[in-house]
Amino acid sequence: MDTDTRNSVQSSTEQELAKLLVESLNIDWVKPGDIDAEAALFGGDLGLDSIDALELALAVSKHYGFSLRSDNPDNQRIFSSLRALSAHIEQHRVA
């Protein structure tokens, strides 16, 4: 069973978010489809840090119409991977 590989494949909402990530951060050397949905989004192989998280949060607010808030106690989990962030967005998106 190669469940690991299967779990890392992006769903369509994750694809949309990955595209937004690459475009908003202007990291055009990364292919959106290559981002492992389960891997660490910040602090991992992508070389992104907390300031990139801020830039992405601004883009998310523009694109999906809701804000990622600093006082959310779940932030560590929300920002942990493309999958976690996408799931959170799908729960709250307005646009």
């Binding site: 910040f42 840090d49 907390s50 300031i51 998280a53 801020l54 949060a57 601004l58 804000s67 990622l68 808030r69 600093s70 006082d71 932030n75 560590q76 920002f79």
Partner: peptide, 12 residues
């Protein structure tokens, strides 16, 4: 606090 929380708070 965590780095993400600080930068988001600055943005707010």
């Amino acid at each position: 606090r965590a780095g993400t929380d600080i930068v988001l708070a600055l943005g707010e």
